[in-house]
Design a protein around this nucleic acid. Sequence first.
DNA 1: AAACGATCCGGACCGAGGTCCGCTTATCGT
DNA 2: ACGATAAGCGGACCTCGGTCCGGATCGTTT
Lengths: 228, 228
Amino acid sequence: MLYAGFMSAALPPLSRPQEPVDPPELLQLGAEPDVDEPCLRADAARNRARLLEAAARLVAEHGAAGLTMEAVAAAASVGKGTVFRRFGDRTGLLTALLDHSERKFQAALLAGPAPLGPGAPPVERLRAFGCAMLRRCVEEMELQLAAEPSPDRRYTIPPRRFLRGHVALLLRQALPDADGELLAHTLMAYLDPALIHHLTAQCGMPLERLEAGWQDLVSRVTRTDPPG
Amino acid sequence: MLYAGFMSAALPPLSRPQEPVDPPELLQLGAEPDVDEPCLRADAARNRARLLEAAARLVAEHGAAGLTMEAVAAAASVGKGTVFRRFGDRTGLLTALLDHSERKFQAALLAGPAPLGPGAPPVERLRAFGCAMLRRCVEEMELQLAAEPSPDRRYTIPPRRFLRGHVALLLRQALPDADGELLAHTLMAYLDPALIHHLTAQCGMPLERLEAGWQDLVSRVTRTDPPG
DNA sequence: AAACGATCCGGACCGAGGTCCGCTTATCGT
DNA sequence: ACGATAAGCGGACCTCGGTCCGGATCGTTT
């Protein structure tokens, strides 16, 4: 219910017969099409769309940090309770605003062209993944920061689980004997929006340095020769 | 009784002539003794102590998550404004509760026995650092989680800067040619309280696995032989 | 001791997130 | 078409973090 899609625009078919694909274990972790809300009542769907539209407009006008739930409700000519019933909380609303881009990104990972999508060797896919994440994060920095969940939900929300699962999958392919889950957490932490924002906006680091840092990190983590 | 020592109990002298010490660049990043509050007025100091005592009691009773600023003020028989003037915000109050343990930890890093303190080779100090952090984090998990700062302050508050600076220092010693700052962020991210909590409490991972993961991560990151 | 200025105190006040419950409306079976 | 029922709606209400300013207190100076 929290992360249902914009207008549940069905993803393009995620497998093309002649191309390589990832194992299907990750698919169910993606942003669920309408799992929680199998079929919204007509008025509810209409209000949902109006709310998202209003929220997007208000974010464009006053910034994501200044977005208040009451303002969204008012701008959509809808009661405050409706906003919370539909999106759960403020984080849920912001997350919904990011949903469209999230789906595109997931689709690119699962079925897009290599090296981001399947077909390239795992380490190369990891390298591409990091750079794509960095770019996407910088693009949507404001929303990403405002949508940060509380500490106890931070690692359990579906989008992050999906991305982390993707990284873990690639790591297991590259390093069958390592603890892919923990290493995936480590790599994902490097791509945390709050960290990226700190380094770029607050410390003034150029994005190139962050990308080089990612390449270096992937190299170090996936190095397979024995310790020196 | 975790939060016993309140008033800025002066740290033990941080350098002993006959023992190895770290360069002094980090010292000023530690928890400031009374930099912000050079000399509190008598009544203010008294109120500050009562507030910390009351807060510690309320945390023990109702958990850190359930702590409200108004309750602390009432329990200390003090006005609400006093709490905010003294500690800035909720995060500041929780951070103050962690200050004693933080100082002890910093002292152990700067002047304690090897391998945590100076004297051991940097990689060995890194290994010890991670395990010590993991243990400390688990001990004070509740407070650590409740005291998490907002995303834009997360990487700038003095305690974290100090710890990260320490890691960066060790990394630069071990890997003079690497980007120690970025790698320090990566290593520190592995030790983030929210992540530790997720893995141990929510995923049920035993602490041993996290420690092994840290050792593995340090090995991979500090490996100096050429990529395979 | 008395007065004065800087510091501090207190609690009324505000804004925003989140909840609740009686009312409304869409949907579906007949 | 129509009633029954479940889903949705709205906005009053609550809590809590954070602010503000008139008045009290401390420490110092003369």
